[in-house]
């Protein structure tokens, strides 16, 4: 044991932490995020991320198969309802239309739920150790990405089946995935901070997600939305993302870039204000939770 402790002390001196001074003071109303500190806690971020990913489907027979099964079954039902019962005209075959729309949405809704519960769900950690609190919501947005990647493989298979070859626009996919991540994070940070104080938020989110889905062009193409409503419709950040995602896959009609820009602006607004709010209230989390 003594050998281990000596070597570790050497290590501590190496990184110059022996002169590290921690100052504890009442929180000021406004602090910038300490990016350097956040970087020091990157191990924790990766570990929490990995913990959620690897514990997500433990003790389940199908395991990560669920990641594909859920959107596949949803897309099948939507196909039955909106392409057999009610006929909705789409440019691409309905199954891949619905699946491509469901993918970013499922990521968004799973992540939003996860991020919203992140701080309250992490209360066991929160009340026992110090770490930058923002790590909790950040670590939650990665979980859905694994599922997203698996679904993407499924989508490629489906596109091959329907003989669709994506054009160069496919290069824009990371951009739209990135915006989806930021959108989920932006709303999630607001909701998770509010959820600490008002648990009503946790109750409302599943309901919110249910409604929200119908306000996105997932089961129907955006062309069915009357022009008069388009601007308000575009304020929904997920509209731009889903439209952009479909466009980059199928390279059909160019999307309304103005609307995508609008969606992106609302995402940015929500994210930045969310970060401000989170930073303001995070010092009270341990007391209120």
């Amino acid at each position: 044991m003594s050998g281990a402790s000596i070597s570790s002390l050497d290590h501590a001196t190496d990184i110059g932490s022996s002169t590290m001074v921690t100052v504890i003071e009442p929180p000021s109303t406004w602090n910038a995020f300490d990016v350097k500190e956040l970087y020091r806690y990157r191990d924790l971020f990766w570990l929490l991320l990995w913990r959620d990913i690897s514990a997500r489907f433990r003790q389940s027979v199908i395991g990560y198969g669920w990641a594909i099964l859920r959107p596949a079954l949803s897309a099948a039902i939507f196909t039955l309802v909106f392409s057999v019962f009610v006929r909705i005209e789409t440019e691409v075959p309905y199954p891949i239309f619905a699946f491509a729309g469901l993918m970013p949405w499922l990521y968004f809704s799973t992540s939003l739920t996860g991020v919203t519960q992140s701080v309250v769900g992490g209360s066991a950690l929160l009340t026992k150790v110090y770490f930058p609190r923002i790590v909790l919501p950040l670590a939650k947005i990665g979980v859905g990405l694994v599922e997203f990647a698996l679904q993407f493989l499924m989508l490629i298979v489906m596109m091959a089946w329907y003989q669709y070859t994506p054009g160069l626009s496919v290069l824009a996919i990371p951009l739209f995935v990135g915006i989806t991540v930021l959108t989920a994070l932006g709303f999630g940070i607001w909701l998770t901070a509010l959820n600490v104080k008002y648990r009503d938020v946790g109750m409302a989110v599943p309901f919110l997600i249910q409604i929200w889905m119908y306000l996105c062009p997932i089961v129907y193409p955006i062309s069915v939305v009357p022009d008069a409503y388009r601007t308000i419709y575009g304020l929904n950040p997920m509209v731009g993302v889903i439209e952009g995602f479909r466009w980059s896959l199928f390279g059909t009609v160019s999307p309304d870039w103005g609307m995508i820009a609008l969606s992106f602006c609302s995402t940015a607004l929500v994210l930045i204000s969310g970060l401000f709010y989170f930073r303001r209230v995070e010092s009270t989390f341990a007391d209120v939770i």
Binding site: S17, S18, M20, I24, E25, P26, L125, V129, Y130, T284
Partner: peptide, 25 residues
């Protein structure tokens, strides 16, 4: 640093480990 003081100040020099529970997380 789990919670913040209402007033006053404290300084800790060096790497701090606090063990408020066994098997946290």
């Amino acid at each position: 640093r789990i919670t913040y003081p209402t007033s006053g100040r404290a300084e800790l020099v060096g790497r701090v480990a606090s063990l408020l529970e066994v098997g946290t997380g």
